[in-house]
Design a protein around this nucleic acid. Structure first.
Length: 295
DNA sequence: TCATCCCTGTAAACTCCCTC
DNA sequence: GAGGGAGTTTACAGGGATGA
């Protein structure tokens, strides 16, 4: 059976002019190399070289194998380097799941740095608000989950990367704008604009309205955070977003950010990964870069 | 655990070329 | 043409891997 060792041997013999010299370069004995080629010749029933005085002359079959080696060996070496990259975690695929819609712009800032530092890692982002991030992470559909709602699962590890306060955004001329903070019943006559996820996943409901047995007059959704802010600025309702996002995207708009309740609602964006994956350099690299970037 | 296979190394034999 | 050097081939044995 023809294998890489044979091709390497033929290339070495061609390059160094003799079996002895080639064997020395390949760190085998001359005899072993001679045996190897003899066996190849016997197996295929064709001579690879013939003796030419004190030297060797490659036959047509030998020349063919040399040409084959010239094409294949560099590709095999390349493949080995790639496999080494996989083995050492320098290469792979990082599939990021997003359960945090407001984090998209934060991720967009992080991504160019990550792609530059890890050029051999395939990077993919999956965003869906009906997406069960934890199940996807456990099912190996994604490798990293960006979520404001970490869960305690033995197989997963969550790392906080961004601390923020959830605030109510109102138009600057809204009657609530004058208040130091809002209370749940302040929203019963309001149109509440949120990202399109189920109510069970909205902190404004689970941690603010529902415990007080309140609900807004109307609930509507918007896909993009900048649209949410524009709707609020146009007086179409009030919204709930992270404070840092309101500061960044709402700059120049007639908006006010109000604390939810006297104490406010503080949250953290977490990166969730499967335990064991923290050893993978390109996964750990993403987490470290996210920590450093912060907001 | 043992038999078998395969690879490799050692040593000797062989071939060819160069020099005298 | 004989002797010596360089290189190859061949026979044999040792050791590791593998499978029953």
């Amino acid at each position: 059976m023809l294998d890489r060792q044979h091709l390497a041997a033929l290339v070495a013999v061609s390059r160094y002019g003799s079996v002895t010299a080639a064997a020395e370069k390949l760190n085998v004995t001359q005899s072993a190399l001679s045996h190897m080629v003899k066996k190849l010749e016997d197996h295929h029933g064709v001579p690879i070289w013939t003796k030419n005085g004190r030297g060797l002359r490659f036959t047509q079959a030998g020349e063919y194998l040399l040409a084959l080696a010239d094409r294949l060996l560099p590709q095999l070496e390349h493949a080995e380097r790639i496999l080494a990259d996989f083995a050492e975690g320098r290469r792979g695929a990082l599939r990021v799941g997003m359960e945090c819609h407001p984090c998209q712009k934060w991720l967009a800032r992080l991504t160019p740095h990550y792609l530059a530092e890890w050029p051999d890692v395939d990077f993919d982002v999956r965003t869906s608000f009906r997406f069960d991030g934890v199940a996807a992470l456990l099912g190996h559909e994604i490798d990293l989950l960006i979520t404001p709602d970490p869960v305690k699962v033995p197989e997963l590890a969550f790392t906080p990367v961004i601390d923020y306060e959830l605030v109510l955004v109102v138009h600057a001329s809204h009657p609530l704008a004058a208040q130091p903070y809002v209370r749940p019943h302040d929203l019963v006559d309001e149109t509440l604009i949120t990202v399109p996820v189920s109510i069970e996943r909205l902190d404004i409901y689970t941690r603010f309205l529902v415990p007080a047995h309140c609900q807004p007059k109307r609930h509507r959704t918007a896909e993009a955070t900048d649209l949410m802010l524009q709707l609020v600025a146009a007086g179409r309702g009030v919204s709930v977003l992270p404070d840092w996002l309101v500061q960044e995207e709402g700059a120049g708009m007639p908006l006010r950010a109000l604390r939810l309740g006297k104490r406010g609602i503080r949250k953290s964006i977490h990166l969730g990964i499967r335990r064991g994956d923290e050893q993978t350099p390109y996964v750990a690299g993403f987490v470290e870069m996210a920590r450093q970037l912060g907001r």
